[in-house]
């Protein structure tokens, strides 16, 4: 086994994602873990936060996890802090770590972690889980896309669902958390390039995962903080015009389309395809576009695996047999 006894990992959040992340990292031999969380254990956490028990209800999660982990992994050096990570403390908390794992349920914190990790040159694994879906993204600062390249900014409060509001199937948190561990070990290993540059989406109902390549975005404010950044920006490609388009529907929107995961529509560009989708399934477009008809900023649409924001946005032409994938960002953790 690789010697990771001197590796230092930062885990932000000791909830649904934090529990599997902590167990997975400790078991992989990561010697030093810094854990930051200001929450206390509640009964409703125990449906998925598998490090805790009823005797922990009311205790700080960082204290409960320290007790459980130290008993199981006596060699682990665990440093805990009962703080909520925010812009005022993120640079101190990130200082000196080899990798950071975002296990929060807070989209604002996800951007704070991403931006500071990129600025300080710390490899990061971002993640989110809600209902039956999850996302994971590994980031190598200065060597490819970051989370802000993909989503320009956090949503307004109330714009996205949280686990507390929309629910989550318990083992989904385990699946996403362990995928984050895998990605973190990849970033720490010999071939970090294989662990970054794409976002993984998880469809729990079908039991499938999908890796979607993410281009680095020119003008990304997070990447601009890193002076050494000199990576290649992908150039958009265009396609022939034509008719039949397959739209991949994420689980959160399937209630508009009778539970289907794919809808065929006609359209020569993305706008026409989305209008066709709305005509067949009224109500869905408002979840994808705002009142002005522009793409909501926390939704990404890929035309044949390319983010339409880097193409011609809603006017991006679609070829015969083109595939549109709708990828909503996820708030929960």
């Amino acid at each position: 086994m690789t010697d990771r006894s001197h590796t230092r990992a930062l885990v932000v959040g000791a909830g649904g994602l934090g529990c599997p992340v902590l167990l997975g990292l400790a078991e992989a031999g990561v010697g030093r873990i810094r854990l930051v969380d200001d929450d206390r254990v509640e009964l409703s956490n125990l449906q998925r936060q598998v490090l805790y028990g009823v005797s922990d209800v009311g205790r700080l999660k960082v204290e409960a996890s320290r007790d459980r982990l130290e008993r199981r992994f006596p060699d682990l050096s665990l440093e805990v802090e009962a703080t909520r990570l925010d812009a005022t403390n993120v640079s101190r908390v990130l200082d000196g770590v080899d990798v950071v794992i975002d296990a929060t349920d807070d989209p604002q914190a996800r951007f704070t972690i991403n931006d500071q990790a990129v600025a300080q040159g710390v490899p990061a694994v971002l993640g989110g889980v809600i209902r039956f879906e999850g996302v994971i993204m590994g980031v190598q600062p200065g060597k490819g896309p970051c989370f802000r390249c993909l989503f320009e900014g956090p949503p307004e409060p109330g714009e996205v669902m949280t686990c507390a509001g929309a629910g989550v199937l318990g083992a989904m948190a385990g699946l996403v958390g362990h995928l984050q561990v895998q990605r973190a070990l990849g970033l720490l290993g010999d071939r970090p390039d294989e662990a970054a540059g794409y976002i993984t989406t998880v469809d729990g109902l079908r039991g499938t995962t999908r890796d979607v390549p993410v281009p680095a975005r020119e003008g990304c404010t997070a990447c601009a903080q890193r002076t050494a950044s000199s990576f290649h920006f992908m150039t958009p490609s265009t396609q022939e015009n034509s008719m039949s388009v397959a739209i991949k529907i994420p689980t959160s929107l399937r209630r508009f389309v009778g539970g289907n995961d794919q809808i065929e529509v006609a359209g020569q560009n993305v706008r026409e395809a989305l209008d066709g989708l709305e005509a067949a399934h009224p109500g869905i477009k408002a979840k994808i576009c705002d009142a002005q008809g522009n793409l909501r900023r926390f939704i990404n649409v890929y035309a044949d695996q390319e983010d339409i924001r880097f193409l011609d946005n809603l006017e991006t032409p679609l070829g015969e047999g083109a595939e549109l994938q709708i990828v909503p960002a996820i708030a929960g953790g």
Binding site: F132, G170, A171, G174, H178, G207
Partner: peptide
Amino acid sequence: SDSRLQGAQAALKVLVAVGV
């Protein structure tokens, strides 16, 4: 198997089959 990922995946399958 020592893959916790695989274990979580297996549990998920049962939760979907029974719960959903």
